[in-house]
Amino acid sequence: MSSEPEYWFPAKRYGWGWGVPSRWQGWAVLVVYFVLLGVAALRFRPDREPVAFVVLATVLTLLLVAACWLKGEPPRWRWGED
C-alpha cells in the first residue's frame, strides 16, 4: 500500500492552484458546487438581487477553494518541470 496521499485535486502543471479533479470525490465536490451555484442563480436572480447572488456565489466559491486546499496537492507556483 502506498503512503503517498491520494489527492482529489492535483496541482496544475503551470501556475498556482489546482487542475481538474483526479478522483470521484473531487468530481462530486465540483458537481455540487455548480448545482448550488445554479440554484442560487434561480433563487436570487442576478438581475434582480445582485448583491445576494454575489454574496452567495462568493461563499460557495470560498467553500470550493477550502475543499481544494484540504483535499488537494499543496499549492505552490509551478513551472511545468515536476
Rank of each mutant, 00 (worst) to 15 (best):
R43H: 15
V29T: 13
P10T: 10
E4D: 09
G38E: 03
L56A: 13
A66E: 10
G38F: 02
L37C: 03
L62F: 10
P74I: 13
P5S: 01
E49C: 13
A41L: 15
R76F: 04
A57C: 01
T58E: 03
P74F: 14
A67V: 13
L30D: 15
V54S: 02
P46N: 07
Y14F: 11
E4P: 06
T58A: 02
W24H: 01
L64Q: 03
M1H: 11
P10W: 10
V65P: 09
F44P: 01
W8V: 13
V51W: 00
R43V: 08
L37P: 02
S22Y: 09
L36I: 06
L60I: 07
P74E: 07
L62C: 08
S2C: 07
T58M: 07
V65D: 11
S22Q: 14
V51Q: 00
A41C: 13
F9L: 14
P5Y: 01
L42F: 05
P5R: 01
A57Y: 02
R78E: 02
G80Q: 14
G72A: 07
W16Y: 03
L64V: 01
F34S: 06
Y33G: 14
A66H: 15
L64T: 02
D82M: 09
V20C: 03
A52G: 00
G72H: 11
S3I: 08
V32R: 08
W16H: 06
D82C: 09
R78I: 04
D47T: 14
L63S: 04
A40P: 08
V65Q: 03
V31F: 07
G17W: 12
F44M: 00
S22H: 12
K71P: 15
P74W: 12
C68G: 15
V32P: 15
E73A: 07
S3C: 11
E73D: 12
R78P: 06
A11S: 10
F53D: 00
V35N: 11
A11G: 14
E49V: 05
W16S: 07
R43P: 13
L60N: 14
T58D: 00
L62Q: 10
L62G: 05
A57T: 00
P50S: 15
R13P: 05
G72C: 13
L37E: 01
Q25L: 05
G17R: 13
A52Y: 00
R13L: 04
P74M: 09
R45E: 05
G80L: 05
L42N: 07
V54L: 04
W24D: 03
V39G: 09
P5H: 01
C68R: 07
Y7K: 08
P75D: 08
V20A: 06
F53P: 04
V51F: 02
L63E: 02
E4M: 11
R45V: 14
Q25F: 04
A41M: 06
L36S: 09
P21I: 06
V29D: 13
P5A: 03
G80M: 05
G38L: 03
V29C: 11
